[in-house]
């Protein structure tokens, strides 16, 4: 899949993942990397951008083993962003499906 396209989808998935509760960087990288077949290293630049855009907040929390982990929490602004991206995605995938059905015959 095209990397630019994947990046947009990756953002939607990261935002959606945090709707279910706070997570730390490794969890996010692991889940997104495996499920979407992107390199896990691409998740960290995305997290940084989501922080600087105010969609995420970060905080440190002690982990049962070893030093504190950096956790990410979605903000109200992030929830709005998720809604907006989800609508765009639904609209886009609907259009693509219609296109493929009509033109693929």
């Amino acid at each position: 899949m095209n990397t630019q396209f994947k990046k947009g989808v990756l953002e939607l998935c990261a935002l959606t993942l945090l709707l279910g509760g706070d997570r730390y960087g490794y969890e996010l990288a692991d889940m997104l990397g495996k499920r979407l077949a992107v390199s896990e290293g691409a998740v960290y630049p995305l997290l940084k951008r989501l922080l600087s855009d105010g969609f995420f907040e970060a905080y440190l929390r002690e982990s049962p083993s070893g030093p504190a982990r950096k956790y990410y929490r979605i903000t109200l602004k992030g929830r709005d962003r998720q809604k907006q991206l989800l609508e765009q995605w639904n609209e886009f995938s609907r259009e693509v499906n219609i296109f493929l059905e009509e033109e693929g015959k």
């Binding site: 730390y24 960087g25 490794y26 990288a29 896990e40 290293g41 960290y44 997290l47 940084k48 070893g66 030093p67 982990r69 950096k70």
Partner: peptide
Amino acid sequence: DFREHFRE
């Protein structure tokens, strides 16, 4: 951030 990733 990447150090933490290696640790985890």
